[in-house]
Computed example of a mutant assay.
Amino acid sequence: MSKFKFQIDPLSNQLKFQQLVDAVTDAISRNLLQVGDILPSVNQLVKESSLSRDTVFKAYAELKNRGIVESVPNKGYFIAKATTKVFLFLDTFKAYKEVLYGSFLDNLPDNFTVDLHFHHYNIEIFEKIITESIGKYSKYIVMNFDHERVPEIIQQIPPAKLLSIDWQVHTIAEASSIYQDFGPSLYQALQTEVPLIKKYQRFIYLYPEFTYHPPESLEYFERFCKDNNIRFEIFKSSRQMTVEQGDLYLLVSDRTLARFLDQCATKNLTIGQDVGVISYNETPMKKYVKDGISVISTDFESMGKKAAEFVKSGESIHLQIPTHLTIRASV
């Protein structure tokens, strides 16, 4: 007797055969179905779910093509493999994303496989990869970006299977999200070190032309400086960065951090004394470069772990990962 029960969702935009495929893969990911378990017969599903025989055959054929199901003549369809496939869609692969990715993998059981993709903030790539992925995965982990077409594209994904991570932009209310804050959290983190920041003549935020860093950080940086009577500048071109003694720099790009370090070496400026720097996003190497680069960052290891918990449990989640300022020798 099969322990798998299936019901059509008449309000869903998904085709009925795809609903059946997804229901089986979801049941496997939740351990409701295991290797060797029998699925309902074609006749049983036709009778109980008002599906056509063609629809059931099409769904079972798709599951067989994926190696998830096998059929035995005169006995029926059985679960052959309990591997669960997860879709992970990141913007770019940087050092801090590697921390997130590594934590995500480390917290998944061996029977989960992850297909990793990147969109590089290109809406055509974003649409193509998501459209081609529909119906092939049990869970979808997606980093959105600020483009007007993102909402219509991600609406192709069933909300219960979707987790938006990192930047809370164009999220779907019914879907899950794990995110960091780029506005008030920046203000609050900087507020913890006002006396240290004030030892510098100017606080300079370099927001280069090539960055996709959320722009609300500019507003809260300016508000922080004005509230604390700190002289500040916001540069929106990487060419504006000429490191000057007595200045403290907030850098959102590791590319500009490298240029900052080069200029300090050329001008014989001692980091943490002559000039200061705070870099966005923790990476393993920033603890050791120049005796430690100060960082303002969310906990990407925790973000990866929480994303893995969503994949394993399937339970809805809405969670903001805190942002902290870590002071090292560079300030």
Rank of each mutant, 00 (worst) to 15 (best):
R66M: 13
L32I: 04
V289C: 08
F4V: 03
S50T: 07
D291K: 14
S50V: 10
I296P: 07
F17L: 13
I278D: 00
A173I: 06
F104C: 02
E209Y: 01
Q191F: 14
L108I: 06
L250K: 02
T131W: 06
I321T: 05
L105T: 09
N268P: 13
F4P: 07
F182A: 11
A308L: 02
I197N: 06
E127Q: 14
L33A: 03
G102T: 09
A82V: 12
R239Q: 07
L116S: 04
A82W: 13
P10M: 08
L218G: 03
R66F: 14
T283H: 06
Q201D: 12
A173G: 11
V289H: 10
Y96G: 04
K286F: 10
S103E: 05
N74G: 13
R259M: 09
G102S: 12
Y288S: 09
E309C: 05
L33E: 02
V194W: 04
T270P: 08
V277Y: 05
K85T: 12
K306E: 12
L248A: 00
I125R: 13
D227N: 13
I165D: 01
G304S: 11
V277D: 05
F310T: 02
N43K: 15
Y77Q: 03
M143G: 11
D26I: 05
V86I: 14
Y121G: 06
N65Q: 12
L90G: 05
L206A: 11
S253R: 08
Y187R: 04
Y96H: 14
Q34I: 14
G246D: 00
Q263G: 01
D146C: 11
V142D: 03
G135P: 09
L186S: 08
F4I: 00
F145E: 15
N65K: 15
Q245E: 15
K139D: 06
T298Y: 12
I230E: 01
Y212M: 14
F224V: 06
Q18I: 15
R202V: 10
G67K: 07
K198V: 03
K198L: 05
Q14R: 13
H170M: 08
I230C: 01
A80I: 10
G292Q: 01
D299L: 03
F112H: 07
V243N: 02
T211M: 10
K81P: 02
K64C: 10
P159C: 04
E301L: 10
I134Q: 07
P215S: 10
I79Q: 06
D166E: 09
L39I: 00
K267D: 15
C225W: 12
Y77F: 04
Q14T: 10
L218P: 02
D247M: 10
L257T: 08
R30Y: 04
L206C: 09
F93I: 06
S2E: 05
F126G: 02
V194E: 02
V252S: 09
S41R: 03
K128N: 13
K199Q: 12
A61R: 07
Q245A: 06
Q156V: 03
F6W: 07
L163M: 01
G183E: 13
D110N: 09
Y96S: 05
A175E: 01
V150C: 09
L186Q: 07
S297M: 06
A329L: 12
D9Y: 02
N144E: 02
M1K: 12
Q18S: 13
F221M: 08
K64D: 12
I178F: 01
S237T: 13
E244C: 06
S330E: 03
L100W: 15
I204M: 01
K139G: 14
Q191V: 12
M241P: 00
L186H: 04
Y140F: 04
